[in-house]
């Protein structure tokens, strides 16, 4: 008879967390199995790169495991994992020092008015083609429920800048739909 592992049972997340904190790797695997899809989805949308997304997903769970004792339960495990993932991605982004798109810059305007004629309405692809900062803001806000103040704090930008980047992202994506409707 095959032994049913802890992570394959219907154990509650809180119980898994408790057991994982006590060093039970099967319990931590339970948490992994329950949340890997969300974490990978977030990483994939943030990076627009499946390989990088896998690396950040792994890094997220490794860091979560190392910090299990520090998790106080003020937020849900999902939110906590999302924050770790975002931090991991942003740390790497800061290391690469990307240019923050200034909402007053000509590039911002150009992107807003970009000729998207001929592009397929593939939202995933379109999100992936957003400027990195706008993509980060959009993914966090539109897909994973972060508030603008939370995004601003995570990205180290002003709330107004976060809103502007979100607006930019929406404008670009909306333009794709407009063009598609016109075709």
């Amino acid at each position: 008879m095959r032994v049913r592992r802890l992570w394959q049972t219907q154990t509650k997340p809180v119980e898994l967390l408790q057991a994982a904190r006590q060093g039970d790797s099967e319990a931590f695997r339970g948490l992994y199995e329950a949340h890997v899809g969300q974490v990978y989805g977030l990483c994939l949308r943030m990076t627009a790169d499946p390989v990088e997304a896998e690396e950040f997903t792994q890094a997220t769970f490794v860091k979560a495991h190392a910090n299990l004792a520090k998790f106080r339960g003020d937020s849900s495990i999902k939110t906590w994992l999302h924050r770790i993932a975002v931090n991991e991605i942003l740390m790497e982004a800061r290391r690469k020092r990307p240019e923050l798109l200034d909402p007053d810059s000509p590039e911002f305007t150009r992107l807003q008015q970009a000729d998207t004629h001929g592009l397929r309405v593939d939202l995933e692809q379109a999100i992936g083609e957003l400027p990195e900062r706008a993509r980060h803001v959009f993914v966090l806000r539109a897909l994973y429920g972060f508030t603008h103040p939370e995004i601003a704090a995570a990205l180290g930008i002003a709330v107004g800048t976060a809103k502007a980047q979100y607006h930019l992202a929406r404008q670009r994506l909306k333009a794709l739909f407009t063009e598609a409707a016109d075709d």
């Binding site: 790797s25 992994y32 890997v36 989805g41 994939l44 499946p50 896998e54 769970f61 490794v62």
Partner: peptide, 20 residues
């Protein structure tokens, strides 16, 4: 859009190797 996307391969073995 699905919020949850399973990675194309099992990431657990590498995670397990790093946390054990």
């Amino acid at each position: 859009l699905p919020r949850s996307v399973r990675p194309g391969r099992d990431l657990w073995p590498e995670i397990e190797a790093r946390i054990m």
